[in-house]
């Protein structure tokens, strides 16, 4: 005798599952294992992982580091924001602050950089246009991501974590120049 969802099963309800349920259970279970295995797999074989070098950082220290970084590699100014061209393989510092990304980065196609993200006030969101790459920028935490720009071009950084009424004004810029070959990937 079958029960419905609102009838009380009488006696023991721990009875063998129906065959088609067993089949579906098995298929689902295998699929869940695949879902799980894909993540470690991508860490070994894939090029995009959110691992990074992660550390706590005092906002004031982070700001000082960004200032130093700008001084070291500044090549110009655009819209009042410094443009910085760090050497391939170096540490790159980006600061999120209501409501600007500082500085403008000039990177080289095919070279690897360690891109540090942090904020000195609220949470901000790093969104790379047009590639749709997203990371959370949290005050007090330094997220150092090893990035390799795969294509030359003109990129934008859009803030996609709500950070007050000026949230929509928070747009930064990254310029990726064509690879100069010899130094590409040089560290």
């Amino acid at each position: 005798m079958y029960t419905t969802g609102v009838t009380s099963p009488q006696g023991v309800w721990w009875k063998p599952a129906h065959k088609s349920e067993k089949i579906w259970f098995t298929i689902s279970f295998i699929w869940c294992l695949i879902l799980f295995a894909m993540m470690p797999f991508w860490h070994f074989k894939g090029g995009q992982n959110p691992s990074g070098i992660r550390a706590k950082v005092n906002p004031a220290d982070y700001q000082a580091r960004v200032t130093q970084f700008i001084q070291d590699y500044r090549v110009g100014t655009e819209n009042g924001i410094p443009v910085v061209a760090p050497p391939a393989g170096s540490d790159v510092y980006l600061l999120g602050q209501m409501w600007a990304w500082t500085p403008i980065l000039q990177l080289e196609e095919g070279a690897e950089y360690t891109l540090h993200l942090s904020s000195i006030d609220l949470n901000h969101g790093f969104n790379l246009y047009p590639f749709n790459v997203n990371f959370q920028v949290v005050p007090g935490y330094d997220y150092g991501l090893r990035v390799t720009p795969t294509e030359a071009g003109d990129y934008r950084i859009v803030c996609n974590e709500f950070c007050g009424v000026g949230h929509h004004l928070m747009v930064g810029k990254v310029i990726v120049t064509e690879s100069t070959d010899a130094s590409g990937g040089d560290r």
Binding site: E21, S28, F29, C32, L33, F36, M39, Q136, Y141, D142
Partner: peptide
């Protein structure tokens, strides 16, 4: 994609230890 947590923690937790809640929903 937060800076506070490592990948092992992320993988184990996001999958509810191997997608057991997903399995439940699929059932």
């Amino acid at each position: 994609v937060d800076p506070g947590f490592g990948s092992a923690w992320k993988v184990v937790n996001t999958s509810y230890f191997m997608y057991m809640a997903v399995l439940a929903s699929m059932l």
